[in-house]
Amino acid sequence: MSARRILAIAALAALIILRIEPRLLSVPFHRPQLARAYASFADRLWPEYPRFLEGVRAHTQSGDSIAVVVPTFDWDRGYSYAYYRASYFLTGREVLPLSDSENHLQLLNFRSAKYIAAWRTEVPRAHFTVVWSGAGGVLLRR
């Protein structure tokens, strides 16, 4: 048998063996634990936040504009997550961010939004009506 053939056999075997993913093969044996972990993966930062957004969705209508207030306005330390997640849960509504990727406050959005969805953050309520509160937050209507 030539050296080239031996190398070809070795390379073929390596190709197959190196691609096998033992972690994927172990998934069926740890399904319940993994299912729990993956189900909470997206919201590991703020596990209660999706429940709040579902409440906001239930108390608003399609087309409503909603500004989101959360404990941070720092884009990379939680606000981007809060804004993106709200966009997903509140489809049909116009979700307006109060911060951007440069960490500039967008106060115009606060003024133009019909609703303020404030989660785990105190917001002055002087000019607002409380529509709903629960899951750690409050939904205010201007």
Binding site: L24, L25, V27, P28, R31, L34, A35, Y38, A39, F41, A42, Y84, R85, S87, Y88, T91
Partner: peptide, 24 residues
């Protein structure tokens, strides 16, 4: 494929890019 099928259906889709881009 069976292992992959179990992985792909473990939970509601969890990837950030799913709920911020494709699924959104």
């Amino acid at each position: 494929l069976a292992a992959y099928a179990i992985y792909a259906t473990l939970a509601p889709l969890w990837e950030w890019d799913f709920w911020a881009i494709w699924g959104l």
